[in-house]
Nucleic acid binder design. Structure first.
Length: 229
DNA sequence: AACTTATGCAACCGCTGGCAT
DNA sequence: AATGCCAGCGGTTGCATAAGT
C-alpha cells in the first residue's frame, strides 16, 4: 500500500514510502552483514535513509518470519487478553504473538479490536460486579474491578497446554487502583512468563528481532509454524 | 460519474532507558 | 555523577483506497 509521498529531510535523507529497490538493498545488506549499528547501516548499505527508518522497515516489513494477512480468532483473542493486562505495551504484546509486529498489532487494535474489547470489558464488568457482590467484601476507593489471571494460564493461542480451567466468566476477581495496576499486576506476569518453559513463541520472536546472518536458514520454521497451521 | 467521508496501515516523530565513557 | 549515543517504544500523521451519498 502506498502511503507517504517520498520526500527528503534537511540532511538529504529520503523519507516516505520505501521502493522495492531500497527494500532489496536493505535485505541484501542485513542478510550478509546483519544489523550491527542502525545509524551507520544505511550508509554502508547504500541507502539514503536514516537508521531509524531502516530499522523500522526491517522490523515491521522485511525481516523473516513475519506473518502477513488476516488475524485468526485465536490471535485476536490473545491480543485482547494481553492488552487487558499489559495495556498499550505493544512490544510486550507482540513478543507473545509470533510473526506479528508491535506496529501491526497496534494498528490492528485501533482499527478492529478496540471497540470489541470495550464491549467485552463492559460485559465482563457486569459479570464481575455481580460476582463481587456475592464473593467479595473489600473494595478500594475508586478501585476498578477486573478479572485476574491465573498465573499458570497459558495465553498462547498455539499452546498445547490447555489444562487451564479458568474461564472468562469465572468469578476470580480482584479490585485494584487502575493507576497502580501495571507494575504490580505485570510484575508477576512477566516473571511468570519468563519462567515458563518451552516458551517457543517468545524465543522465536527474540530470534527474529536479533537477526544474525549465517544462521542456519530458519531451520526452526517448521516447528514454529506447525503450531499455527 | 463525481464528490465526500471513513478506514487501514506504513512510516514518522519524539521520548525514554540502557550503556559506554 | 554527568554526558552523549543509540536502540527501542508508543503515539501520531499522512495518504491510498473503499464506501457512502
Amino acid at each position: 500500500m502506498m502511503v507517504r509521498t517520498p520526500s527528503s529531510d534537511k540532511n538529504g535523507l529520503k523519507k516516505g514510502t520505501w521502493t522495492p529497490e531500497e527494500d532489496q538493498k536493505l535485505v541484501d545488506y542485513i542478510t550478509r552483514y546483519g544489523h550491527w549499528n542502525w545509524r551507520l547501516l544505511p550508509k554502508f548499505a547504500g541507502l539514503a535513509r536514516c537508521g531509524k527508518s531502516c530499522r523500522l522497515r526491517w522490523l515491521n516489513y522485511l525481516r523473516p518470519n513475519l506473518k502477513r494477512g488476516n488475524y485468526s480468532e485465536e490471535e485476536e483473542e490473545t491480543i485482547i487478553k494481553l492488552h487487558r493486562h499489559l495495556g498499550n505495551r505493544w512490544s510486550a504484546i507482540a513478543a507473545r504473538i509470533p510473526g506479528r509486529t508491535d506496529n501491526e498489532i497496534k494498528n490492528y487494535w485501533h482499527t478492529n479490536l478496540k471497540k470489541r474489547s470495550e464491549q467485552d470489558s463492559a460485559t465482563d464488568s457486569q459479570v464481575s460486579n455481580s460476582c463481587e457482590q456475592s464473593l467479595t467484601t473489600t473494595t478500594e476507593p475508586s478501585g476498578n474491578t477486573f478479572q485476574s489471571f491465573n498465573s499458570t494460564q497459558d495465553y498462547s493461542p498455539f499452546s498445547q497446554n490447555s489444562s487451564s480451567s479458568i474461564t472468562s466468566t469465572e468469578c476470580n476477581t480482584v479490585t485494584i487502583n487502575e493507576n497502580l495496576a501495571p507494575q504490580d499486576e505485570f510484575a508477576f506476569w512477566d516473571a511468570d512468563t519468563d519462567l515458563m518453559t518451552g516458551n517457543f513463541w517468545l524465543e522465536s520472536y527474540m530470534r527474529d528481532i536479533s537477526y544474525v546472518p549465517n544462521e542456519p536458514e530458519y531451520s526452526f520454521d517448521a516447528e514454529l509454524w506447525s503450531h499455527d497451521n
